[in-house]
Design a protein around this nucleic acid. Structure first.
Lengths: 205, 205
DNA sequence: ACCTGAACACCGTTCAAGT
DNA sequence: ACCTGAACACCGTTCAAGT
């Protein structure tokens, strides 16, 4: 079988995405990636400036997978669509949250989704200041949910700690964690409704 | 002047907190910390098992600074107190968000604040499932807000990207970012009100 | 008991050298 | 033009050795 592996940015990014998805951001070192590509570590620097540019290109791909809502629906429906898309993407690529948390990167490919969210908030009757604040709230929720659920799989540190809490001093903590069962529950949709009730008022649908 | 520097866990943790607060988590390496303590890198391993234990002890200190609310106030007041405390602490020690995001650690010293929050939600009439979901929402908001505002100081990547957006395609994006001024605005208190409106209903005060 | 230096297995990145 | 090896300045951590 012939070897066609001429190195290019796309195969580097694709391979990096695969490693990050499967083993997390911590496992995605330049040297590890080079092994995966069967190439010397330095060969990649001909195609990608540095690790930050690589992460940025990876983020570009993921941001491109965020599908903007159809313009037809109600404001509430459109906002729900954007947030659900972000949720889906964060769940698929948990490394994105780490990149956001530690590097503070962003991709312009997310702009269509942002535009749709701002437009929907404006259509719902919010002024510019309210749109700015509410959109921040929605994004912060999406980030925070991803961050928390990222480390809530299986038996997290926090869950373990709460399970061992003294029932005399912390009865509510014990009740809340005891009733939760073992697998993490999916709160996203219900909490997004609460959030939208707070932002738009419960009457908006 | 005499040298009293016998190494102990407390001075290690205190020095580590100072470095993390001043220069961020990335600058807090074991080797860098050793230089700060004027000691060989390996000396610290007599007092602290590894880097994770060090971070855990640092988190303990910060969690201990989260003041639980007085039992007297209304549910809404008590919840606001807990969340505002978390916000204050995340603002003071931004490295905590990185630790939560990448390591998934937690400290039992946060239990009094959690207990107070759960109790307040129950007092407001929420059942166990609602309390579980709503408390998750509140914490996710606090984490997300910290994560976002952490990298929003000065001219963030995201802000830069939005400022350069095409006004034809993304009019709302441009309007929202243009009106925002240069320094990041403080949305926390207003957004917490929105959140509590959604969780408790606007009538609760 | 407490601290040290050398060493191991890693990082990202630069730079001169190879083809 | 594209890739490589050696090197630099870092990591966390282990282990034998010093006092």
């Amino acid at each position: 079988v012939a070897r066609l592996l001429t190195l290019d940015p796309d195969t580097i990014v694709t391979t990096a995405l695969r490693v990050a998805r499967a083993e997390g951001l911590a496992s995605l070192s330049m040297r590890r990636l080079a092994v995966e590509l069967k190439v010397s570590a330095m060969a990649m620097y001909r195609h990608v400036a540095d690790r930050e540019e690589l992460l940025l290109r990876m983020l570009d791909v993921v941001a491109g997978e965020v599908d903007p809502p159809a313009a037809a629906g109600s404001p509430r429906t459109r906002i729900t669509h954007v947030l659900t898309e972000l949720h889906r993407v964060f769940r698929q690529d948990t490394w994105v949250v780490e990149v956001l948390a530690t590097e503070g990167l962003a991709s312009p490919r997310i702009l269509p989704a942002m535009e749709a969210m701002y437009a929907a908030l404006a259509d719902a009757g919010l002024d510019l200041a309210e749109t700015r604040e509410s959109s921040a709230l929605l994004l912060e929720f999406a980030y925070g949910e991803a961050l928390v659920s990222h480390h809530d799989k299986a038996e997290s540190f926090a869950r373990q700690m709460m399970r061992q809490a003294d029932p005399e001093r912390f009865p509510h903590v014990v009740a809340v964690v005891a009733g939760a069962g073992n697998e993490p529950r999916e709160h996203f949709a219900a909490n997004l409704e609460r959030l939208l009730d707070g932002i738009l008022g419960p009457q908006h649908n």
